[in-house]
């Protein structure tokens, strides 16, 4: 309860700061206040296209994220087991991590359809995060416990269920949570540049072009709220899985 009240007070403080700065600037065109933003958000929420647009973006980001988690899991597991594969693939991972996301978006735009660019970019950003997390966690699995499972002749399935999955669960949860934030940011950035139809990123771009700053903030707020909601859901799911194990 205390924590919730503290969180609420902190939220109120920062909204007040936003309102204060907006009032000080005095130009809604430069910085709309929280009231303008919420009004714009409600106005948008009354239209069907808002929900369709949000859903399309959500599906694109979710698809890229899901593919990224799956690929990261496979690559992390394979590279933890095969040193030669790790040596072969680690430069790819380094390049992906070091390259600005905008470079990838522009490059990929030449190869695949606008609609798929955000999916691919979210996938590309999530994969190395999960890959690294899983590989490091697998490399850190307790050797003594590994030897115990060999001594008692655990089957591969039993080893996976009782040793490897519980060992990597904290790192996998952390990687998935971090990856989710990256998927959102990179997916929306890809939409802003690729501008597919029915996309939050396209609406952000249009709001910027047509100087609809309140809409720009309202769409941004939508993205933030969705991202926070999904992160909370993911953490809850991970906790439940952890408790069930």
């Amino acid at each position: 309860m205390k924590k919730a009240v503290r969180g609420l007070l902190i939220g109120v403080f920062w909204i007040a700061v936003w309102a204060g700065v907006s009032a000080a600037v005095g130009l809604k065109l430069l910085l709309p206040g929280p009231g303008d933003t919420v009004r714009a958000l409600f106005a948008l929420a009354r239209t069907g296209s808002f929900w369709l647009t949000t859903l399309q973006t959500l599906l694109r980001v979710a698809a890229g994220y899901g593919l990224g988690v799956l690929t990261g899991l496979l690559l992390g597991s394979a590279c933890a087991r095969l040193a030669w594969l790790d040596a072969l693939l680690s430069p790819v991972r380094t390049v992906i991590k070091a390259t600005p996301v905008s470079s990838f978006i522009i490059l990929v735009l030449l190869w695949i359809s606008r609609t798929r660019v955000p999916v691919f970019i979210a996938f590309l950003m999530v994969t190395p995060i999960v890959w690294t997390g899983v590989q490091e966690a697998l490399n850190a699995v307790d050797r003594d416990l590994k030897e115990m499972t060999e001594m008692y002749r655990f089957t591969a399935g039993k080893r996976l269920r009782y040793l490897y999955l519980p060992s990597i669960r904290p790192a996998l949860t952390a990687a998935c949570t971090t990856g989710l934030g990256f998927a959102w940011k990179s997916g929306i950035a890809a939409e802003v540049i690729a501008r597919p139809e029915m996309a939050v990123g396209t609406r952000l771009y249009n709001a910027q072009i047509y100087l609809e700053r309140a809409d720009l903030f309202a769409w941004t707020l939508t993205v933030i709220l969705l991202s926070m909601g999904l992160e909370a859901l993911l953490k809850r799911l991970a906790r439940r899985k952890g408790a069930a194990a």
């Binding site: 003594d144 416990l145 115990m148 008692y152 039993k158 009782y162 040793l163 519980p166």
Partner: peptide, 19 residues
Amino acid sequence: FQEDRLLPWLTAEKNVEIV
């Protein structure tokens, strides 16, 4: 083993049941 090597995420019962 010289060390107990129990799986920390399993109960005593489950640690024995798995073998």
